[in-house]
Design a protein around this nucleic acid. Structure first.
Lengths: 248, 248
DNA sequence: GCAAAAGTGTTGTCCTTACACCCATGC
DNA sequence: GCATGGGTGTAAGGACAACACTTTTGC
Protein backbone atom coordinates (compact mmCIF):
# COMPACT_ATOMS: atom_id res chain seq x y z
CA UNK A 1 0.00 0.00 0.00
CA UNK A 2 2.74 2.42 0.91
CA UNK A 3 4.33 3.75 -2.23
CA UNK A 4 7.99 4.30 -2.63
CA UNK A 5 9.48 7.75 -2.42
CA UNK A 6 8.79 10.18 -5.20
CA UNK A 7 12.02 11.99 -6.07
CA UNK A 8 11.85 15.75 -5.96
CA UNK A 9 15.41 16.28 -7.07
CA UNK A 10 14.38 17.95 -10.29
CA UNK A 11 13.55 21.14 -8.41
CA UNK A 12 16.31 23.73 -8.79
CA UNK A 13 18.32 24.13 -5.61
CA UNK A 14 21.07 26.42 -4.50
CA UNK A 15 23.39 25.08 -1.85
CA UNK A 16 20.88 22.28 -1.48
CA UNK A 17 17.97 24.62 -0.91
CA UNK A 18 15.03 25.18 -3.21
CA UNK A 19 14.91 28.70 -4.56
CA UNK A 20 12.15 28.62 -7.13
CA UNK A 21 9.10 27.92 -5.01
CA UNK A 22 6.67 28.48 -7.86
CA UNK A 23 8.37 25.83 -9.92
CA UNK A 24 8.23 23.56 -6.90
CA UNK A 25 4.50 23.97 -6.55
CA UNK A 26 4.01 23.54 -10.29
CA UNK A 27 5.69 20.18 -10.02
CA UNK A 28 3.06 18.91 -7.59
CA UNK A 29 0.23 16.75 -8.86
CA UNK A 30 -3.09 18.58 -8.80
CA UNK A 31 -6.39 17.26 -7.66
CA UNK A 32 -9.91 18.62 -8.01
CA UNK A 33 -11.19 19.47 -4.58
CA UNK A 34 -14.78 19.96 -3.51
CA UNK A 35 -16.63 20.88 -0.38
CA UNK A 36 -19.81 19.23 0.84
CA UNK A 37 -22.19 20.73 3.37
CA UNK A 38 -24.11 18.63 5.83
CA UNK A 39 -26.78 20.86 7.31
CA UNK A 40 -28.73 19.39 10.18
CA UNK A 41 -32.11 20.62 11.30
CA UNK A 42 -34.75 19.41 13.69
CA UNK A 43 -38.46 19.34 13.09
CA UNK A 44 -41.41 17.22 14.13
CA UNK A 45 -39.20 15.49 16.66
CA UNK A 46 -36.92 14.26 14.00
CA UNK A 47 -33.42 14.99 12.86
CA UNK A 48 -33.37 16.33 9.31
CA UNK A 49 -30.68 17.06 6.82
CA UNK A 50 -30.66 19.27 3.75
CA UNK A 51 -30.36 17.29 0.53
CA UNK A 52 -30.74 17.78 -3.18
CA UNK A 53 -31.22 15.42 -6.08
CA UNK A 54 -28.01 14.42 -7.77
CA UNK A 55 -27.31 16.09 -11.09
CA UNK A 56 -25.67 12.99 -12.45
CA UNK A 57 -27.39 10.59 -14.78
CA UNK A 58 -25.71 7.63 -13.11
CA UNK A 59 -27.08 8.68 -9.72
CA UNK A 60 -30.51 9.51 -11.12
CA UNK A 61 -33.04 9.76 -8.34
CA UNK A 62 -30.41 9.53 -5.61
CA UNK A 63 -29.96 12.17 -2.97
CA UNK A 64 -26.82 14.18 -2.65
CA UNK A 65 -25.18 16.66 -0.31
CA UNK A 66 -24.82 20.32 -1.16
CA UNK A 67 -21.41 20.53 -2.75
CA UNK A 68 -19.28 22.17 -5.35
CA UNK A 69 -15.65 22.39 -6.28
CA UNK A 70 -13.42 24.96 -4.65
CA UNK A 71 -12.57 27.80 -6.95
CA UNK A 72 -9.02 29.01 -7.44
CA UNK A 73 -7.77 30.94 -4.47
CA UNK A 74 -10.86 30.24 -2.50
CA UNK A 75 -10.40 29.06 1.06
CA UNK A 76 -12.31 25.84 1.55
CA UNK A 77 -14.53 27.14 4.29
CA UNK A 78 -15.33 30.10 2.11
CA UNK A 79 -16.26 27.70 -0.67
CA UNK A 80 -18.58 25.88 1.70
CA UNK A 81 -20.31 29.14 2.63
CA UNK A 82 -20.62 29.96 -1.05
CA UNK A 83 -22.22 26.61 -1.80
CA UNK A 84 -24.65 27.11 1.01
CA UNK A 85 -25.58 30.53 -0.23
CA UNK A 86 -25.96 29.42 -3.84
CA UNK A 87 -27.99 26.38 -3.01
CA UNK A 88 -30.16 27.64 -0.20
CA UNK A 89 -29.79 31.39 0.01
CA UNK A 90 -28.59 31.13 3.62
CA UNK A 91 -25.80 33.36 4.80
CA UNK A 92 -26.07 33.37 8.57
CA UNK A 93 -24.91 29.85 9.27
CA UNK A 94 -21.80 28.72 11.07
CA UNK A 95 -19.93 25.87 9.44
CA UNK A 96 -17.42 23.54 11.01
CA UNK A 97 -15.03 21.23 9.24
CA UNK A 98 -15.61 17.57 9.94
CA UNK A 99 -13.11 15.77 7.75
CA UNK A 100 -11.73 14.98 4.33
CA UNK A 101 -12.72 12.12 2.08
CA UNK A 102 -10.09 11.12 -0.41
CA UNK A 103 -10.67 7.54 -1.51
CA UNK A 104 -9.38 7.45 -5.09
CA UNK A 105 -12.59 5.94 -6.50
CA UNK A 106 -15.09 7.94 -4.50
CA UNK A 107 -16.13 9.99 -7.54
CA UNK A 108 -17.03 8.09 -10.70
CA UNK A 109 -15.61 10.83 -12.92
CA UNK A 110 -12.08 10.55 -11.59
CA UNK A 111 -10.23 11.52 -8.53
CA UNK A 112 -11.91 14.20 -6.43
CA UNK A 113 -11.12 14.98 -2.81
CA UNK A 114 -13.85 16.49 -0.71
CA UNK A 115 -13.91 18.23 2.64
CA UNK A 116 -17.11 17.94 4.65
CA UNK A 117 -18.53 20.89 6.55
CA UNK A 118 -21.32 20.62 9.04
CA UNK A 119 -23.83 22.92 10.64
CA UNK A 120 -26.89 22.86 12.86
CA UNK A 121 -29.71 25.26 12.33
CA UNK A 122 -33.32 25.70 13.11
CA UNK A 123 -35.61 25.03 10.24
CA UNK A 124 -38.12 27.70 11.17
CA UNK A 125 -35.55 30.43 10.88
CA UNK A 126 -34.19 29.45 7.55
CA UNK A 127 -36.87 29.30 4.95
CA UNK A 128 -35.66 27.66 1.78
CA UNK A 129 -35.95 30.24 -0.94
CA UNK A 130 -34.30 28.16 -3.62
CA UNK A 131 -35.71 24.83 -4.64
CA UNK A 132 -33.40 23.79 -7.44
CA UNK A 133 -32.71 20.05 -7.53
CA UNK A 134 -35.58 19.48 -5.11
CA UNK A 135 -33.68 20.95 -2.21
CA UNK A 136 -35.50 19.90 0.93
CA UNK A 137 -35.22 18.77 4.52
CA UNK A 138 -34.87 15.02 4.50
CA UNK A 139 -35.53 12.80 7.47
CA UNK A 140 -32.11 11.62 8.60
CA UNK A 141 -33.23 8.21 9.76
CA UNK A 142 -34.83 7.38 6.43
CA UNK A 143 -31.67 7.90 4.40
CA UNK A 144 -30.59 4.58 3.02
CA UNK A 145 -28.53 5.28 -0.01
CA UNK A 146 -26.97 8.36 -1.52
CA UNK A 147 -24.92 9.48 -4.50
CA UNK A 148 -21.13 9.14 -4.31
CA UNK A 149 -19.88 8.31 -0.81
CA UNK A 150 -22.28 10.80 0.67
CA UNK A 151 -23.87 8.25 2.96
CA UNK A 152 -20.50 7.69 4.53
CA UNK A 153 -19.94 11.43 4.85
CA UNK A 154 -23.32 11.97 6.42
CA UNK A 155 -22.76 9.15 8.90
CA UNK A 156 -19.43 10.63 9.91
CA UNK A 157 -21.13 13.99 10.43
CA UNK A 158 -23.85 12.38 12.51
CA UNK A 159 -21.25 10.92 14.85
CA UNK A 160 -19.62 14.32 14.98
CA UNK A 161 -22.99 15.82 15.87
CA UNK A 162 -23.63 13.35 18.67
CA UNK A 163 -20.32 14.18 20.22
CA UNK A 164 -20.75 17.86 19.62
CA UNK A 165 -24.07 18.34 21.36
CA UNK A 166 -22.72 16.62 24.43
CA UNK A 167 -19.76 18.93 24.70
CA UNK A 168 -21.40 22.17 23.72
CA UNK A 169 -25.00 23.27 23.98
CA UNK A 170 -25.18 23.54 20.21
CA UNK A 171 -28.45 21.71 20.28
CA UNK A 172 -30.06 25.09 20.73
CA UNK A 173 -29.13 25.98 17.20
CA UNK A 174 -31.47 23.30 15.99
CA UNK A 175 -34.45 24.75 17.84
CA UNK A 176 -36.51 27.88 17.27
CA UNK A 177 -35.64 30.92 19.38
CA UNK A 178 -38.37 30.03 21.80
CA UNK A 179 -38.59 26.46 22.85
CA UNK A 180 -39.95 24.36 25.67
CA UNK A 181 -37.88 22.04 27.79
CA UNK A 182 -39.79 19.14 26.32
CA UNK A 183 -38.66 20.13 22.83
CA UNK A 184 -35.09 20.41 24.02
CA UNK A 185 -35.26 17.00 25.61
CA UNK A 186 -36.83 15.49 22.50
CA UNK A 187 -33.94 16.82 20.52
CA UNK A 188 -31.32 15.29 22.78
CA UNK A 189 -33.14 12.00 22.90
CA UNK A 190 -33.54 11.90 19.14
CA UNK A 191 -29.94 12.70 18.35
CA UNK A 192 -28.33 10.61 21.05
CA UNK A 193 -30.77 7.77 20.69
CA UNK A 194 -31.38 7.45 24.41
CA UNK A 195 -34.17 8.01 26.90
CA UNK A 196 -33.52 10.66 29.50
CA UNK A 197 -35.20 11.25 32.83
CA UNK A 198 -37.33 14.35 32.52
CA UNK A 199 -36.72 15.65 36.01
CA UNK A 200 -32.99 15.19 35.87
CA UNK A 201 -32.84 16.70 32.42
CA UNK A 202 -34.68 19.80 33.60
CA UNK A 203 -32.51 20.07 36.67
CA UNK A 204 -29.36 19.78 34.60
CA UNK A 205 -30.32 22.64 32.33
CA UNK A 206 -31.76 24.73 35.14
CA UNK A 207 -28.51 24.49 37.07
CA UNK A 208 -26.47 25.54 34.06
CA UNK A 209 -28.35 28.77 34.01
CA UNK A 210 -28.20 28.99 30.24
CA UNK A 211 -31.94 29.24 29.70
CA UNK A 212 -33.93 32.42 30.00
CA UNK A 213 -37.57 32.10 30.94
CA UNK A 214 -39.28 34.50 28.56
CA UNK A 215 -42.57 34.39 30.41
CA UNK A 216 -44.48 32.86 27.54
CA UNK A 217 -46.22 29.55 27.22
CA UNK A 218 -46.72 27.04 24.48
CA UNK A 219 -49.91 27.46 22.52
CA UNK A 220 -52.14 25.10 20.64
CA UNK A 221 -50.93 22.04 22.44
CA UNK A 222 -53.50 19.41 23.44
CA UNK A 223 -52.31 19.34 27.03
CA UNK A 224 -50.98 21.63 29.67
CA UNK A 225 -48.70 24.16 27.91
CA UNK A 226 -45.09 24.37 28.95
CA UNK A 227 -43.00 27.46 29.58
CA UNK A 228 -40.94 28.80 26.72
CA UNK A 229 -37.27 29.63 27.08
CA UNK A 230 -34.57 31.18 25.01
CA UNK A 231 -30.91 30.34 25.06
CA UNK A 232 -28.54 32.67 26.86
CA UNK A 233 -25.86 32.98 24.18
CA UNK A 234 -23.97 35.72 25.98
CA UNK A 235 -23.55 33.69 29.13
CA UNK A 236 -22.50 30.68 27.11
CA UNK A 237 -19.87 32.64 25.23
CA UNK A 238 -18.47 34.01 28.46
CA UNK A 239 -18.16 30.70 30.25
CA UNK A 240 -17.55 28.42 27.30
CA UNK A 241 -15.62 25.73 29.01
CA UNK A 242 -12.66 25.75 31.28
CA UNK A 243 -12.69 22.02 31.02
CA UNK A 244 -9.78 20.31 32.60
CA UNK A 245 -10.42 16.84 33.84
CA UNK A 246 -9.57 13.37 32.74
CA UNK A 247 -12.69 11.73 31.56
CA UNK A 248 -12.54 8.23 30.16
CA UNK B 1 -15.70 37.54 0.46
CA UNK B 2 -18.34 35.18 -0.88
CA UNK B 3 -17.92 34.83 -4.60
CA UNK B 4 -20.76 34.66 -7.05
CA UNK B 5 -21.88 31.37 -8.52
CA UNK B 6 -19.66 29.66 -11.01
CA UNK B 7 -21.78 28.35 -13.87
CA UNK B 8 -21.43 24.67 -14.64
CA UNK B 9 -23.83 24.67 -17.56
CA UNK B 10 -21.14 23.77 -20.04
CA UNK B 11 -21.23 20.16 -18.86
CA UNK B 12 -23.18 17.92 -21.27
CA UNK B 13 -26.52 16.92 -19.86
CA UNK B 14 -29.30 14.64 -21.01
CA UNK B 15 -32.77 15.48 -19.79
CA UNK B 16 -31.05 17.94 -17.48
CA UNK B 17 -28.73 15.30 -16.04
CA UNK B 18 -24.98 15.10 -16.46
CA UNK B 19 -23.92 12.02 -18.35
CA UNK B 20 -20.22 12.51 -18.92
CA UNK B 21 -18.84 12.45 -15.41
CA UNK B 22 -15.24 12.42 -16.54
CA UNK B 23 -15.75 15.60 -18.45
CA UNK B 24 -17.40 17.04 -15.39
CA UNK B 25 -14.43 16.30 -13.21
CA UNK B 26 -12.05 17.57 -15.85
CA UNK B 27 -13.84 20.90 -15.72
CA UNK B 28 -13.02 21.34 -12.03
CA UNK B 29 -10.10 23.52 -11.01
CA UNK B 30 -7.22 21.49 -9.63
CA UNK B 31 -5.15 22.24 -6.61
CA UNK B 32 -1.91 20.76 -5.33
CA UNK B 33 -2.60 19.01 -2.10
CA UNK B 34 -0.13 18.02 0.58
CA UNK B 35 -0.18 16.22 3.88
CA UNK B 36 1.73 17.31 6.98
CA UNK B 37 2.49 15.06 9.92
CA UNK B 38 2.63 16.37 13.45
CA UNK B 39 4.25 13.66 15.54
CA UNK B 40 4.25 14.25 19.25
CA UNK B 41 6.57 12.55 21.68
CA UNK B 42 7.45 12.97 25.32
CA UNK B 43 10.88 12.93 26.83
CA UNK B 44 12.65 14.52 29.75
CA UNK B 45 9.31 15.74 31.05
CA UNK B 46 8.71 17.73 27.96
CA UNK B 47 6.42 17.53 24.99
CA UNK B 48 8.38 17.12 21.79
CA UNK B 49 7.51 17.19 18.15
CA UNK B 50 9.30 15.80 15.13
CA UNK B 51 10.63 18.52 12.85
CA UNK B 52 12.95 18.93 9.93
CA UNK B 53 14.74 21.89 8.43
CA UNK B 54 12.87 23.49 5.60
CA UNK B 55 14.19 22.75 2.12
CA UNK B 56 13.30 26.20 0.90
CA UNK B 57 15.81 28.96 0.53
CA UNK B 58 13.28 31.54 1.69
CA UNK B 59 12.71 29.59 4.90
CA UNK B 60 16.38 28.89 5.40
CA UNK B 61 17.05 27.77 8.94
CA UNK B 62 13.38 27.54 9.80
CA UNK B 63 11.77 24.36 11.05
CA UNK B 64 9.11 22.57 9.14
CA UNK B 65 6.66 19.70 9.55
CA UNK B 66 7.10 16.40 7.77
CA UNK B 67 5.09 16.81 4.62
CA UNK B 68 4.83 16.02 0.97
CA UNK B 69 2.26 16.29 -1.78
CA UNK B 70 -0.29 13.57 -2.28
CA UNK B 71 0.44 11.43 -5.31
CA UNK B 72 -2.20 10.65 -7.89
CA UNK B 73 -4.70 8.13 -6.63
CA UNK B 74 -3.21 8.12 -3.20
CA UNK B 75 -5.59 8.41 -0.30
CA UNK B 76 -4.48 11.27 1.91
CA UNK B 77 -3.98 9.18 5.00
CA UNK B 78 -1.92 6.80 2.95
CA UNK B 79 0.16 9.73 1.79
CA UNK B 80 0.71 10.75 5.39
CA UNK B 81 1.92 7.25 6.28
CA UNK B 82 4.20 7.33 3.27
CA UNK B 83 5.70 10.66 4.34
CA UNK B 84 6.29 9.32 7.79
CA UNK B 85 7.99 6.24 6.46
CA UNK B 86 10.15 8.15 4.02
CA UNK B 87 11.17 10.76 6.52
CA UNK B 88 11.61 8.71 9.66
CA UNK B 89 11.46 5.05 8.70
CA UNK B 90 8.51 4.50 11.03
CA UNK B 91 5.69 2.26 9.96
CA UNK B 92 3.91 1.30 13.16
CA UNK B 93 2.30 4.61 13.95
CA UNK B 94 -1.36 5.49 14.02
CA UNK B 95 -2.28 8.78 12.39
CA UNK B 96 -5.42 10.82 12.85
CA UNK B 97 -6.66 13.66 10.72
CA UNK B 98 -6.80 16.98 12.48
CA UNK B 99 -7.87 19.43 9.80
CA UNK B 100 -7.25 21.13 6.49
CA UNK B 101 -5.42 24.38 5.90
CA UNK B 102 -6.38 26.13 2.71
CA UNK B 103 -5.57 29.82 3.01
CA UNK B 104 -4.72 30.89 -0.55
CA UNK B 105 -1.40 32.46 0.40
CA UNK B 106 -0.23 29.85 2.87
CA UNK B 107 2.43 28.56 0.48
CA UNK B 108 4.74 31.11 -1.12
CA UNK B 109 4.94 29.10 -4.35
CA UNK B 110 1.23 29.29 -5.10
CA UNK B 111 -1.89 27.73 -3.85
CA UNK B 112 -1.39 24.52 -1.92
CA UNK B 113 -3.93 22.93 0.39
CA UNK B 114 -2.66 20.76 3.18
CA UNK B 115 -4.26 18.26 5.49
CA UNK B 116 -2.68 17.82 8.91
CA UNK B 117 -2.29 14.40 10.49
CA UNK B 118 -1.29 13.86 14.06
CA UNK B 119 0.13 11.07 16.16
CA UNK B 120 1.54 10.38 19.59
CA UNK B 121 4.36 7.98 20.11
CA UNK B 122 7.03 7.13 22.56
CA UNK B 123 10.42 8.32 21.64
CA UNK B 124 12.25 5.33 23.09
CA UNK B 125 10.45 2.93 20.81
CA UNK B 126 11.01 4.79 17.63
CA UNK B 127 14.64 5.37 17.00
CA UNK B 128 15.18 7.81 14.20
CA UNK B 129 17.08 5.96 11.52
CA UNK B 130 16.96 8.73 8.98
CA UNK B 131 18.44 12.11 9.71
CA UNK B 132 17.90 13.97 6.47
CA UNK B 133 17.12 17.66 6.93
CA UNK B 134 18.20 17.42 10.55
CA UNK B 135 15.15 15.42 11.52
CA UNK B 136 14.94 15.54 15.30
CA UNK B 137 12.68 15.79 18.31
CA UNK B 138 12.13 19.44 19.02
CA UNK B 139 10.91 20.81 22.32
CA UNK B 140 7.35 21.92 21.68
CA UNK B 141 7.41 24.86 24.04
CA UNK B 142 10.47 26.37 22.40
CA UNK B 143 8.95 26.58 18.96
CA UNK B 144 8.53 30.21 18.07
CA UNK B 145 8.46 30.42 14.34
CA UNK B 146 8.20 27.92 11.55
CA UNK B 147 8.17 27.69 7.78
CA UNK B 148 4.83 28.24 5.96
CA UNK B 149 1.86 28.27 8.32
CA UNK B 150 3.28 25.32 10.20
CA UNK B 151 3.18 27.13 13.52
CA UNK B 152 -0.54 27.51 13.13
CA UNK B 153 -0.90 23.87 12.17
CA UNK B 154 1.14 22.71 15.12
CA UNK B 155 -0.86 24.88 17.50
CA UNK B 156 -4.10 23.43 16.18
CA UNK B 157 -2.69 19.95 16.69
CA UNK B 158 -1.65 20.81 20.21
CA UNK B 159 -5.19 21.81 21.07
CA UNK B 160 -6.37 18.61 19.47
CA UNK B 161 -3.89 16.71 21.64
CA UNK B 162 -5.04 18.37 24.84
CA UNK B 163 -8.60 17.40 24.13
CA UNK B 164 -7.64 13.97 22.98
CA UNK B 165 -5.74 12.85 26.04
CA UNK B 166 -8.65 13.86 28.22
CA UNK B 167 -11.11 11.77 26.29
CA UNK B 168 -8.95 8.75 25.61
CA UNK B 169 -5.97 7.36 27.45
CA UNK B 170 -3.80 8.03 24.46
CA UNK B 171 -1.23 9.56 26.70
CA UNK B 172 0.16 6.08 27.12
CA UNK B 173 1.32 6.15 23.53
CA UNK B 174 3.74 8.86 24.47
CA UNK B 175 5.37 6.81 27.19
CA UNK B 176 7.63 3.79 27.08
CA UNK B 177 6.00 0.38 27.58
CA UNK B 178 6.95 0.47 31.21
CA UNK B 179 6.31 3.65 33.06
CA UNK B 180 5.79 4.89 36.56
CA UNK B 181 2.76 6.78 37.74
CA UNK B 182 4.93 9.81 38.25
CA UNK B 183 5.92 9.78 34.59
CA UNK B 184 2.30 9.47 33.58
CA UNK B 185 1.34 12.36 35.78
CA UNK B 186 4.20 14.47 34.46
CA UNK B 187 2.92 13.86 30.99
CA UNK B 188 -0.60 14.97 31.79
CA UNK B 189 0.62 18.00 33.66
CA UNK B 190 2.94 18.99 30.86
CA UNK B 191 0.39 18.64 28.10
CA UNK B 192 -2.57 20.11 29.91
CA UNK B 193 -0.54 22.81 31.62
CA UNK B 194 -2.02 22.14 35.04
CA UNK B 195 -0.92 20.80 38.40
CA UNK B 196 -2.66 17.64 39.53
CA UNK B 197 -2.94 16.16 42.98
CA UNK B 198 -0.72 13.11 43.11
CA UNK B 199 -2.98 11.01 45.31
CA UNK B 200 -6.11 11.74 43.34
CA UNK B 201 -4.32 11.14 40.09
CA UNK B 202 -3.18 7.73 41.26
CA UNK B 203 -6.62 6.86 42.54
CA UNK B 204 -8.19 7.87 39.24
CA UNK B 205 -5.98 5.59 37.23
CA UNK B 206 -6.12 2.80 39.75
CA UNK B 207 -9.91 2.78 39.65
CA UNK B 208 -9.95 2.64 35.86
CA UNK B 209 -8.10 -0.61 36.07
CA UNK B 210 -6.20 0.11 32.87
CA UNK B 211 -2.75 -0.27 34.37
CA UNK B 212 -1.00 -3.55 34.90
CA UNK B 213 1.54 -3.73 37.68
CA UNK B 214 4.44 -5.57 36.06
CA UNK B 215 6.22 -6.17 39.34
CA UNK B 216 9.24 -4.11 38.41
CA UNK B 217 10.63 -0.94 39.89
CA UNK B 218 12.30 2.13 38.55
CA UNK B 219 16.08 2.00 38.55
CA UNK B 220 18.75 4.62 38.78
CA UNK B 221 16.55 7.21 40.38
CA UNK B 222 17.98 9.31 43.21
CA UNK B 223 15.09 8.52 45.52
CA UNK B 224 12.74 5.73 46.37
CA UNK B 225 11.95 3.90 43.11
CA UNK B 226 8.36 3.69 41.95
CA UNK B 227 6.50 0.73 40.59
CA UNK B 228 6.40 0.26 36.84
CA UNK B 229 3.17 -0.36 35.00
CA UNK B 230 2.12 -1.17 31.52
CA UNK B 231 -1.06 -0.13 29.80
CA UNK B 232 -3.86 -2.66 29.43
CA UNK B 233 -4.66 -2.13 25.77
CA UNK B 234 -7.02 -5.07 25.56
CA UNK B 235 -9.19 -3.84 28.37
CA UNK B 236 -9.23 -0.38 26.90
CA UNK B 237 -10.30 -1.62 23.50
CA UNK B 238 -13.10 -3.65 25.03
CA UNK B 239 -14.55 -0.86 27.11
CA UNK B 240 -13.66 2.12 24.95
CA UNK B 241 -16.44 4.44 25.94
CA UNK B 242 -20.13 4.04 26.19
CA UNK B 243 -20.26 7.71 26.90
CA UNK B 244 -23.70 9.17 26.98
CA UNK B 245 -24.07 12.17 29.16
CA UNK B 246 -24.41 15.87 28.71
CA UNK B 247 -21.27 17.49 29.83
CA UNK B 248 -20.89 21.22 29.52
C1' DG C 1 -63.56 13.71 34.70
C1' DC C 2 -60.20 11.95 31.78
C1' DA C 3 -56.04 12.08 29.12
C1' DA C 4 -51.56 14.08 28.59
C1' DA C 5 -47.89 16.28 29.72
C1' DA C 6 -45.93 20.07 33.02
C1' DG C 7 -43.81 20.92 37.05
C1' DT C 8 -41.41 19.81 41.37
C1' DG C 9 -38.02 17.43 45.68
C1' DT C 10 -35.65 13.87 48.16
C1' DT C 11 -32.55 10.34 48.88
C1' DG C 12 -28.68 7.38 48.11
C1' DT C 13 -24.64 6.62 45.57
C1' DC C 14 -20.66 7.73 43.44
C1' DC C 15 -17.10 10.66 42.02
C1' DT C 16 -14.07 14.42 43.05
C1' DT C 17 -11.48 17.20 45.94
C1' DA C 18 -8.60 18.54 49.56
C1' DC C 19 -5.42 17.30 52.61
C1' DA C 20 -1.05 14.79 55.98
C1' DC C 21 1.63 11.20 57.29
C1' DC C 22 4.87 7.30 56.99
C1' DC C 23 8.10 4.65 53.84
C1' DA C 24 11.97 3.29 50.86
C1' DT C 25 15.93 4.54 48.61
C1' DG C 26 20.47 7.13 47.40
C1' DC C 27 23.76 9.79 49.05
C1' DG D 1 20.30 11.06 58.92
C1' DC D 2 18.68 13.75 55.40
C1' DA D 3 16.64 14.74 51.08
C1' DT D 4 13.55 13.12 47.64
C1' DG D 5 9.77 11.45 45.97
C1' DG D 6 6.67 6.90 46.59
C1' DG D 7 2.76 5.18 48.57
C1' DT D 8 -1.63 5.37 51.16
C1' DG D 9 -6.70 6.87 53.58
C1' DT D 10 -10.33 9.71 54.95
C1' DA D 11 -13.80 13.13 55.19
C1' DA D 12 -16.68 16.65 52.94
C1' DG D 13 -19.02 18.33 49.07
C1' DG D 14 -21.05 18.09 44.65
C1' DA D 15 -23.03 15.78 40.77
C1' DC D 16 -25.95 12.29 39.10
C1' DA D 17 -29.57 8.56 39.07
C1' DA D 18 -33.67 6.84 40.59
C1' DC D 19 -38.07 7.63 41.72
C1' DA D 20 -43.98 9.59 42.55
C1' DC D 21 -47.21 12.82 43.16
C1' DT D 22 -49.76 17.12 42.16
C1' DT D 23 -51.12 20.62 38.62
C1' DT D 24 -52.82 22.54 34.44
C1' DT D 25 -54.94 22.42 30.22
C1' DG D 26 -57.97 20.54 26.16
C1' DC D 27 -61.48 17.76 25.11
Amino acid sequence: MIKSSIPTNHIPKKEGLITDVHKLVESYPRVPITVDCVIFGFDENELKVLLIRSDLEMYKGKWSLLGDFAADNEELKEAAYRVLKERTGMTDVYLEEVGTFSAPQRHPGGRVITVAYCSLLNIQHHELKIHANELHWHSFSSIKEMAFDHKKIIDTCYQWLQKRIQEHPLGFNLLPDKFSLRELQNLYEAILGVQLDRRNFRKKFASMDLLIDIGEMEEDVPHRPGKLYKFNYEKYEKNKRKWVGIDF
